[in-house]
């Protein structure tokens, strides 16, 4: 059964086609990855699926709800970890978590316990009463992950979740999600530009480049389709380009853009 159904989804920014007529389905309980270089249209697709950006055309159905026409209902069924920051700097770590818990209807009897569990899990429990603005970039990233995992939705969207995340928290996060997947049948939709990550985590991968899906299938299928012996080579063959690693410089550049008021990515 498909829990995510996307048909002919297109997003134009002015004349620029960021997402170009893509269609795909994700099955319930699946780990599904969008693999593609920076600027491929991954975040734009996720923003449309999570109801914060209106598509130019196409349809999105999440857990049986139309994410465009009935977005209030669609939002009941998913959770998301964003690529870039979405914390409130002026609140403490604990307050950010608690706020999230209230918005996501986590009953207060279990909210407190879960906040503690997850803050311990990302080693921020001792810092729970500090304002987030005092945190380093890595700590903020860990807090984003902890907050994102607080409620147990049917579908998790993770937009480049491991970007800027330490190896330990990354391991923790994947095992936490696998456990949720096993016990509650949670579906995970992630985007990444790390080939190894897609290979290790995802049951099926969609290779996306310049707003188009170049190929979709299991890693094995992608290899066969392209007649190559690794996902990396398959990727190269499909997109004709190396994945550009997002360096610390890119991150800083994005920050700069932010503060100079140009359009956000």
């Amino acid at each position: 059964m498909a829990i995510i159904e996307v048909k002919n989804l297109t997003k134009k920014f002015g004349d620029f086609l960021a997402v170009d007529n893509i269609s795909f389905q994700v099955r319930q309980g699946e780990f599904f990855a969008f693999l593609g270089p920076n600027g491929a249209g991954k975040s734009t697709t996720i923003k449309m699926m999570t109801t914060i950006l209106k598509p130019t055309s196409g349809s999105i159905v999440i857990s049986g709800h139309d994410a465009i026409g009935d977005s209030d209902r669609a939002r009941q069924s998913f959770g998301i970890v964003f690529q870039d920051q979405s914390l409130d700097d002026e609140l403490t770590a604990w307050e950010n978590m608690d706020f999230h818990g209230v918005l996501y209807d986590i009953p207060s009897v279990i909210r407190g316990g879960r906040v503690k569990q997850l803050l311990e899990f990302v080693e921020l429990w001792d810092r729970r009463d500090d304002l987030v603005k005092k945190f380093s970039g890595g700590m903020k990233r860990r807090l984003e992950i902890a907050r994102g995992l607080m409620h147990h939705p049917k579908v998790f969207f993770l937009d480049e979740p491991t970007l800027g995340l330490d190896a330990q928290t990354r391991q923790h996060m994947w095992s936490y999600l696998k456990n949720l997947n096993r016990t509650e049948g949670t579906t995970v939709f992630l985007t990444t530009h790390y080939i190894e990550e897609a290979e290790q985590i995802a049951q099926r991968v969609a290779v996306i480049d310049r707003g188009k899906i170049a190929a979709i299938g299991t890693v094995e299928e992608l290899r066969q389709e392209t007649g190559t012996d690794s996902l990396e080579k398959a990727f190269l063959k499909l997109t004709g380009s190396h994945i550009r690693e997002e360096s610390a410089g890119d991150f800083a550049a994005r920050r700069m853009r932010l503060f100079h008021g140009s359009k956000k990515n």
């Binding site: 109801t51 009941q76 964003f82 409130d88 918005l103």
Partner: peptide, 17 residues
């Protein structure tokens, strides 16, 4: 500000109108 610092996203994807 919420938009610039990203927090608006957190609120907009939450299950509320």
């Amino acid at each position: 500000w919420d938009r610039q610092f990203g927090f608006l996203k957190e609120v907009l994807v939450a299950p509320m109108s």
